[in-house]
Computed example of a mutant assay.
Amino acid sequence: MTHATTHPYSGRARATAVPGVIRTLLPAYAAALECTRELTEPALFEAEGREVADALPARRAEYATVRRVARACLAELGVPPAALVRGADGAPRWPAGTVGSLTHCRGYRAAAVARSRDADGVGIDAEPCAPLPSRVLTGVTSAAERAHLAELGARRPGVPWCRILFSAKEAYYKVWYPATGSWLGFDDAEVVLQPGRDQGEFMVRPVSGGARRARRADAAFDPVATGFPALPGRWAAGAGVVVTAIAAPAGFLPRRAQAGRTATGTLRCAQ
């Protein structure tokens, strides 16, 4: 999905990260880079090192690599290097005036960053290019989505549609959460995928009455009432990885103070 080459990092060190497929999934105003091996330089900021000081080596490596890729993206935008530490909610804190997203799965790391004057939010996600286990599939999709997946599978077999749908929801959440400050369940959003062999488009929209929300403390929360819009995105599948990306242009999302009732919660996966 990517080629080995070098990319300038802040004019001093060099990070092996390339535009690759991730760049084709996002608007021109976003800097997006990916890599398929761990990067060992430049050094992490002290605050970042503390965050993973007690983590297993593999976790430290993916944490460090994805931040090195992110700083290469920031350099493209002319933003000085900064520590990308996690906030209380587990989400990375981006430098003032920027929005961004990180993702990693086995053998793949990527980051996307845009200036907030150009985008209200950016969300990317990478997953293994393989079908979801059946028990996971039923937990992250609605009956309507499963019917949609069956139709897509009949039209274009061999494409991991269920994994693309899952990844699209993850990318949507990475735009949703910074804008609303509220948790979003898999049953609170619905995805429609456009057929394609290696790349395509999708649409994600919030929905009311999620089947599993009734069992949660925030059962009365209505994602639609926040005014958060449906968002289009793009996907790509190949070389063992599924990647999805969403960008919301500046002024497109409701401000947090304008959103409807929010719910408490935390990010599912800390980056």
Rank of each mutant, 00 (worst) to 15 (best):
71 R>M: 07
19 P>R: 05
118 D>I: 06
261 R>E: 15
222 D>R: 05
44 L>P: 03
224 V>I: 09
9 Y>W: 15
17 A>Q: 03
216 R>G: 14
174 K>N: 00
252 F>L: 11
27 P>Y: 06
12 R>F: 08
44 L>R: 04
161 W>A: 00
117 R>L: 02
90 G>T: 09
87 G>S: 12
264 T>P: 05
202 F>A: 11
219 A>F: 13
151 E>H: 08
192 V>C: 14
175 V>Y: 01
103 T>C: 10
221 F>K: 11
114 A>C: 13
228 F>V: 02
238 G>K: 12
188 D>L: 12
267 L>H: 12
179 A>E: 00
104 H>I: 03
224 V>C: 04
218 D>T: 14
135 R>W: 02
18 V>E: 08
157 P>V: 07
137 L>F: 02
57 P>H: 00
229 P>I: 10
256 R>H: 06
248 A>N: 14
78 G>K: 07
138 T>G: 07
224 V>W: 00
165 L>Q: 06
147 A>G: 10
34 E>Q: 15
170 E>D: 08
255 R>H: 08
185 G>D: 14
191 V>L: 00
209 G>E: 02
100 G>R: 10
22 I>Y: 06
207 V>M: 03
215 R>V: 12
242 V>Q: 00
214 A>S: 12
270 A>Q: 12
106 R>C: 03
68 R>S: 08
209 G>Y: 11
196 G>W: 00
42 P>F: 10
136 V>R: 02
260 G>K: 07
66 V>E: 13
188 D>Q: 13
69 V>Y: 10
198 D>E: 12
161 W>R: 01
146 R>I: 02
14 R>N: 02
195 P>G: 02
164 I>T: 03
83 A>Q: 01
50 R>L: 09
11 G>N: 09
1 M>Y: 03
68 R>L: 08
74 L>H: 04
194 Q>P: 02
70 A>Y: 10
269 C>G: 07
55 A>P: 07
255 R>Y: 04
63 Y>T: 10
120 D>I: 10
47 A>H: 07
121 G>L: 05
206 P>F: 09
154 A>I: 06
208 S>W: 11
90 G>N: 11
159 V>C: 00
13 A>D: 15
231 L>R: 11
20 G>C: 07
253 L>D: 15
124 I>Y: 07
94 W>S: 04
258 Q>D: 15
204 V>M: 14
17 A>D: 00
84 L>K: 13
111 A>E: 12
265 G>N: 08
226 T>Y: 02
131 P>F: 04
51 E>R: 12
62 E>F: 03
271 Q>R: 11
202 F>R: 05
157 P>W: 04
198 D>A: 06
263 A>S: 13
203 M>E: 04
78 G>H: 14
91 A>K: 08
124 I>P: 01
115 R>M: 06
90 G>F: 11
5 T>I: 04
145 E>L: 10
